[in-house]
């Protein structure tokens, strides 16, 4: 995902940096946490398989595609997203689920459409015990100096609610908005 701040680093769910784990796998020296942690174990198994596969490529004298590294790192990054899915439909063909982090991208996109508002971080979470697709939304925003904060937050809730239902396919049970910063810009900016 190209939007800044959604995934600052290639972190695994346990917090370990995937690039560091990759280095440790490469030299064959996992640390204590990595040996014990199921997330690190799963990722390192994937890395080992990738190394073997790319080794086979080298033997076959085929140059790996230029953007292979990018695809691998994207897979590492989106691996985190596979931990939490929101069920948004289940018809006669099968279920449709959207990663909670992908739903959060839609929410941030909607909040950014509000004049004088920049979305910072966002989480969307399926509420346990509630019907499928009923979610809690937590959003952090920064406002431009001079913007009427309460009116902006009302507008954010309106846009985020509509985007959640129409663009992402989930029902926001509530939308918590926290203003975490003000940036200078003036009323006319």
């Amino acid at each position: 995902m190209a939007i800044e701040g959604v995934d600052e680093a290639y972190l695994l769910p346990c917090g370990q940096d995937a690039a560091i784990l990759w280095e440790h796998v490469t030299v064959g020296q996992l640390d204590e946490h990595e040996l014990d942690c199921p997330h690190c174990q799963a990722a390192s198994a994937g890395f080992v398989a990738l190394r073997e596969a790319t080794g086979e490529l080298a033997e076959a004298e085929l140059a790996p595609p230029r953007d292979l590294t990018e695809r691998i790192m994207r897979a590492v990054r989106t691996e985190r997203r596979r931990d939490a899915f929101i069920p948004i439909a289940d018809n006669d063909l099968g279920p449709i689920r959207v990663a909670a982090q992908a739903a959060a991208v839609v929410v941030r996109f909607a909040a950014d459409q509000t004049d004088g508002v920049t979305a910072r971080s966002c989480t969307v979470q399926q509420l346990p015990g509630e019907p499928d697709g009923w979610c809690a939304v937590r959003l952090e925003v920064a406002l431009r100096y001079g913007v009427d904060g309460m009116a902006a937050v009302d507008r954010i809730r309106e846009l985020v609610g509509a985007a959640a239902r129409e663009l992402a396919g989930f029902e926001p049970a509530w939308i918590d908005v926290t203003v975490v910063d003000i940036w200078p810009g003036g009323r006319g900016a």
């Binding site: 995902m1 989106t78 899915f85 279920p95 959207v98 990663a99 992908a102």
Partner: peptide, 9 residues
């Protein structure tokens, strides 16, 4: 057919 939307970009 199960659809998993992993990213929006």
């Amino acid at each position: 057919v199960e659809i998993l939307v992993v990213d929006v970009d």
